[in-house]
Simulated scan of single mutants.
Amino acid sequence: MKESPLKDKSYAFAIRIVRLSQYLQNHKKEFILSKQLLRSGTAIGALIRESEFAQSKADFISKMSISLKEANETAYWLSLLKDPGYINEKMFQSIQPDCQELIAMLVSTVKTSKQPH
């Protein structure tokens, strides 16, 4: 897994999450949800990176599956930030499709990895 779209997209997404978290803390004075978002949103790429040196196929699948769970959790936090108005619809629509794309890519990776070769 040298350079891959999944690795690149998850890293770019993590940067956006860091910036969004900073915005929420500095401008909206929101600290609890923003930290949850920061944790789950940056864990996606960290787990993908970990999977590069997985000890086995099962370990690779496990790391990718956990990354998928983190992406799904991130989608939850984004919705929870949008609905009470911490982020507006435009901000939400800017980042949510990237999160959904990562989820789709991770689902595909996990499914493909589970297939016998």
Rank of each mutant, 00 (worst) to 15 (best):
G45K: 01
C99S: 15
Q22S: 10
E50F: 06
Y76P: 00
V18G: 02
A46T: 13
K90A: 12
S51Y: 10
K90R: 14
L78C: 02
G41L: 05
A75L: 14
Q100A: 12
E70F: 03
D59I: 07
K7A: 08
M105K: 00
T74M: 08
Q36Y: 08
Y86T: 00
I32R: 07
S56C: 06
I48E: 02
I15D: 14
L102Y: 05
E73D: 11
N72K: 15
I87Q: 04
L80K: 06
Y76T: 09
S65D: 01
S4I: 11
E70H: 06
I32H: 08
K2H: 10
S113V: 12
A58C: 10
F13T: 02
N26P: 03
A12N: 12
L106I: 08
L6A: 06
S10C: 09
I15V: 15
F92R: 02
L102S: 03
A46Y: 10
Q22C: 05
K90G: 09
K82N: 11
A75N: 09
E30V: 13
T112L: 09
M91S: 14
K29Q: 14
Q55F: 09
S94Q: 15
M105H: 03
I15F: 00
L106V: 10
T109W: 03
S79C: 10
L24K: 00
V18N: 08
S21V: 03
M91I: 12
V110Q: 02
A43P: 00
K9P: 11
A54K: 00
V107G: 04
S108Y: 08
K90N: 14
Y11L: 15
F60M: 08
N72R: 15
F13E: 03
D59G: 07
K29E: 15
T74E: 00
T42F: 05
K69A: 13
M64R: 02
Y76D: 06
A14Y: 09
K90T: 15
M1S: 13
L37W: 02
E70Y: 07
K57L: 11
I32Q: 10
Y23A: 03
A71Y: 00
D8T: 13
K63T: 02
Y11W: 12
E89K: 11
Q96G: 00
V18M: 07
